[in-house]
Nucleic acid binder design. Sequence first.
DNA 1: CGCTTGGTTGATGTCTGTCAATTTTTGTGG
DNA 2: CCACAAAAATTGACAGACATCAACCAAGCG
Lengths: 229, 229
Amino acid sequence: MIDRTLVSALPIFAGMEESALDKLLSNAVQRPVAKGAKVFEQGQKATSFYLLLQGRLKVMQVTAGGQQLIVRVVHPGDLFGFALAIGRTEYPGTPIAVADSIVLAWPMNMMNSFLERNPTLAINAMQMIGQRLDQAHNRIREMSTQEVERRIAHTVIRLAQEAGIHEGADIRIDFPISRQDIAEMTGTTLHTVSRILSNWETRGLVKGGRQLLLVSNLTGLKRLAEHED
Amino acid sequence: MIDRTLVSALPIFAGMEESALDKLLSNAVQRPVAKGAKVFEQGQKATSFYLLLQGRLKVMQVTAGGQQLIVRVVHPGDLFGFALAIGRTEYPGTPIAVADSIVLAWPMNMMNSFLERNPTLAINAMQMIGQRLDQAHNRIREMSTQEVERRIAHTVIRLAQEAGIHEGADIRIDFPISRQDIAEMTGTTLHTVSRILSNWETRGLVKGGRQLLLVSNLTGLKRLAEHED
DNA sequence: CGCTTGGTTGATGTCTGTCAATTTTTGTGG
DNA sequence: CCACAAAAATTGACAGACATCAACCAAGCG
């Protein structure tokens, strides 16, 4: 049995009664996922849905043409793999642990019955998905109106806010992330990402390294991202 | 009072009891929207949410830099303007009627109470938003991996499926749509759209015109959209 | 200490956005 | 009902941002 206090503060469970939350947790299974391992694979029948307790995941998709892209990064406290909630029976992507992680899993068929019995949970879930929709629209807007450099700037800022820890004067992205990863998040190539990050480094905006990214000048980066030059 | 039979078949109300649906409808206000008129404007406080009964809307967004894009096309039976469901207090976009339309409006504050009392409705709403999320992800994938011609092909195919009516051997997009509109849906310029559609016309795939689009060869278009050349 | 993975950087080509000019269609007011 | 203006579409010329191709370097790791 998972301790309620571990999860009761999460937005998705906000406003739920303790007994209901306990009931929910009693049906969850805890599972460690080693760095580099997949939680499930794109195209598999969706049998469970998940909550990330600890660690970090990236959700990948491969297109029919074999190209890869990163749909999103899953942070602790995020739900993922709730295919049925969006009317699908198969998982649309593959979550891969980029750091040693722990996930909570529920059988998918529990979802509907639980949502029906807990309207608060249903509303929370709807809002969470809604926020994701909003983020997706932002990304679409960025991709259709902004050139690569600003898209990368936005992505790096987002990462700094969602997964940044202060390290001296810098903000460090708290998981291993490659140029290729950033390219797959912004819809460009690792070459272009590398060039732009190198340029930023000479300008003192960021510090780079192997699977490493530090933001040195967040406001400068924001100016670059927002400003209509 | 709006007649229940007009809306009871809509997916969003699937599984709802008649009495609950009647109660819901008794709080709705019907409102005609003339072609070219806006239902509400981006940035306004979200006071109502809507259902499109008849006609067609395009939802526009303007970026900080003044660029426009079309977030989506609203077809009869679709909900729109449910900002609160996604945790916002202002409308994120502006719906404009591209044909004379009729909408149903509810006060936004009714939403939560109604969802709490109708778990089925909450689940339906969640799934609907989820499907939209899925569509948004598809669009992101297209934008990051495909060149303009294939993106336009996908968009035209989608329009033909969602708003196409057969007209002889052709499929006609059933509302006035300009090259500019298509450009704003695909993240390109009207010039590029014009060039590509002209080319398609010489190849017998589509027929064009002023605010007009007919698909002559859907399978050919699909081959163009799917095929890895 | 070689191999593998990730990163950098240069050269080149091309897609597609920008600028510009022209035509076609539609709507409106005299 | 015609003339004129406004809106939509077409097409060409040109440039620039990025992808692609290619070679080389650095850093973990067995």
